[in-house]
Design a binder for these strands. Structure first.
Length: 398
DNA sequence: TCTGGGGTCCTAGGACCC
DNA sequence: TCTGGGGTCCTAGGACCC
């Protein structure tokens, strides 16, 4: 008989803030808030000391400063966080041959059939937590359950330094005890819609038909919720999905009124995007832009053509057309973004006319420039237009 | 309070074809 | 004369997550 499946979901507690406290002993026991730079930044992580002041992630930095004026505000240091993340992931790999990294601070471990090696479920979870703490100085919260969906919810059930085990026989009671907001995949809007239909908790939802949920939320979300409240894995985390899109966006310190400046910024974005295109060796036939106006209204435009994007100039031309189409003259712009969708791996099929038209050559030149930049560090190889842009986008000129 | 940056998936409607 | 049904591809926007 094959052993029953069980999974760990492991979540690093207040990860960025914890790394800062680890690296700077003087920050320990104090409210540490890692946030975006500039006055329009938001909190990305804060220590539990800061949470006591009501600070939480995604909160505008200005608000956090009001709530916690003596907080230690730090910019994020991603390379360092990735380093620590790697250490933790290496420990995961000692416990399971099937580790699914979900982001920099969380992963699923398929622990099925590992009792002989690590002992019963609870023992192995405690062992893992202890090893992570002694090996990296970081604390984690672990959720254990028969499927990934429940394990994911369980890891958030008791934080920090938590361990929540949901046995098969307790799944129903566990799911029904959950506040709606703790159900992964149910956000504010969905909650409001459910509540206005009289469905205010998971237990009530578990007692209505799938069709009712579908009529309220649509086909896919209705089906998802019907499964979710029963603890049936909706399959969100079944496999590592292939990358489908890449994008870059920028929120400005001050809203921008000048179309030429927007075009220059779009040029920068298209440069960064094409670097990533080369780095990840992908291309796409669909490009898109995103504009967020001063009133937070957000619009987007996309265009698909037969030929995949070839080089940065090609990309910029396509993006520029979209910007011209979508831009509303006179409206202040707070964010501009650009992306590639439906990306495909590898170089696009070699067509004869590519060579003849010089398209292929252009791309090769750019790839060489990209490799040089990578070696020498960015900003070394800079196009004339970018030099202008940097002058233009200097703060306070807007 | 005044709202980042990177993603994924879904929906509704339009165009086009058979 | 006015109107099918299904399928595919594309677009714009919304919801959600870390």
């Amino acid at each position: 008989m094959s052993p029953p499946p069980y999974f760990f979901h492991v979540d690093l507690d207040a990860f960025f803030a914890s790394v800062e406290q680890l690296d700077h002993p003087e920050y320990r026991g104090k409210p540490v808030i890692v946030s975006g730079m500039g006055k329009r930044g938001v909190v990305s992580t804060c220590s539990y000391e800061a949470r006591r002041f009501g600070v939480h992630s995604a909160m505008p930095k200005l608000k956090a400063m009001q709530l916690c004026p003596h907080g230690i505000f730090l910019p994020s240091n991603m390379p360092r966080y990735y380093e620590k993340s790697k250490e933790v992931m290496e420990i995961f790999c000692r416990y399971s041959s099937d580790v699914q990294r979900m982001s920099v601070d969380e992963a699923f471990l398929d622990m099925t059939g590992t009792e002989k090696l690590f002992g019963p479920v609870e023992e192995s979870a405690r062992k893992l937590k202890k090893e992570i703490f002694s090996g990296t100085g970081l604390s984690v919260s672990v959720g254990v359950a028969q499927n990934k969906y429940i394990a994911k919810i369980a890891s958030g059930f008791s934080k920090p330094d938590g361990l929540t085990i949901v046995l098969d026989k307790d799944v129903k009671a566990f799911m029904e005890s959950l506040p709606l907001k703790d159900l992964w995949g149910v956000g504010k809007k969905t909650r409001e819609r459910l509540e206005s239909a009289g469905l205010k908790d998971t237990k009530t939802i578990a007692n209505v038909s799938e069709n009712l949920l579908k009529s309220l939320l649509g086909e896919a979300s209705g089906h998802f919720l019907y499964s979710a409240v029963r603890g049936i894995d909706p399959g969100f985390f079944s496999n590592v999905p292939a990358e489908k899109s890449i994008s870059n966006e920028k929120t400005f310190e001050h809203d921008i009124y000048d179309y030429d400046i927007l075009e220059n910024i779009l040029f920068d974005l298209s440069q960064e995007l094409s670097y990533r295109m080369f780095e990840e060796n992908v291309t796409s036939r669909t490009v898109n832009i995103k504009i967020r106006y001063g009133d937070f209204r957000t619009v987007s435009a996309q265009a698909t053509v037969d030929d995949p994007v070839n080089d940065s100039q090609d990309l910029f031309q396509r993006l520029k057309m979209l910007l011209a189409k979508k831009y509303e003259k006179g409206n202040p712009v707070r964010l501009l973004g650009a992306g590639l969708q439906n990306i495909t791996q590898g170089r696009f099929p070699a067509q004869k006319e590519l060579f003849e038209s010089g398209r292929e050559k252009k791309r090769s030149v750019e790839e060489a420039v990209y490799n040089l930049t990578k070696k020498m560090g960015k900003k070394i190889v800079t196009k004339a237009r970018q030099l202008n842009t940097h002058a233009d986008t200097d703060d306070k000129k807007y």
